[in-house]
Simulated assay, not measured.
Amino acid sequence: MQEMKQIYYNESGTSFFWRKENEILTDKIQLIFRETGFYFSRHELKLFQCCIEESYILNNCCDDCELKSNCHKFLLKTPCSQIDLAVSMDELNSVKDLVEGTLFKINLNDYLYGEGMN
């Protein structure tokens, strides 16, 4: 079994890089949301972030609702044209946090151990 290096996690999922023979494979990110796993390149993860933002703008209508983000499910597009996810607004917020947190940590590490090193 391959080992992993965790990048970010929240209550709905996690993201990590796979390790192979003690080398961290940083070209792809494994993102697990609920029971679904995605294996994205950095570019695909950024595209997913755009899909989430678009969905958030189109479906953010729960402010005055008594059920507050829990009842209605809608389709969230992914960079994989064959796959959409059915999510509630709460789940959308959670996957948004997961993706943004993952990208933030990746960019921070790239800076700290790349161009930010003296």
Rank of each mutant, 00 (worst) to 15 (best):
M1Q: 01
E3M: 09
K5L: 09
K5N: 04
Q6G: 05
S12M: 13
S12C: 14
G13H: 02
G13N: 01
T14E: 07
F16K: 08
W18P: 01
L25I: 13
L25H: 08
T26V: 09
T26Y: 03
D27W: 06
K28Y: 12
I29L: 02
Q30D: 06
F33L: 10
R34P: 02
T36W: 01
G37I: 07
F38C: 08
F38S: 06
S41H: 13
S41Y: 09
R42H: 14
H43K: 14
E44H: 12
E44T: 02
L45H: 00
L45F: 02
K46P: 02
K46T: 14
L47A: 11
L47Y: 03
I52E: 03
I52G: 02
E54I: 15
Y56I: 04
I57Q: 08
L58Y: 05
L58G: 00
N59A: 04
N59Y: 06
N59K: 06
N60Y: 08
C61K: 10
D63K: 13
D64E: 13
L67F: 05
L67W: 03
S69W: 00
C71L: 10
C71P: 00
H72V: 04
T78S: 05
T78M: 05
P79W: 12
S81Q: 12
S81H: 12
S81I: 15
I83C: 00
D84R: 02
D84G: 03
V87R: 00
V87L: 03
S88K: 05
M89D: 00
M89K: 06
M89W: 03
E91C: 03
V95L: 01
V95M: 02
D97L: 11
D97E: 15
E100R: 15
E100S: 15
I106G: 00
N107I: 07
L108F: 13
N109F: 15
Y111R: 13
Y111D: 08
Y113R: 11
N118L: 15
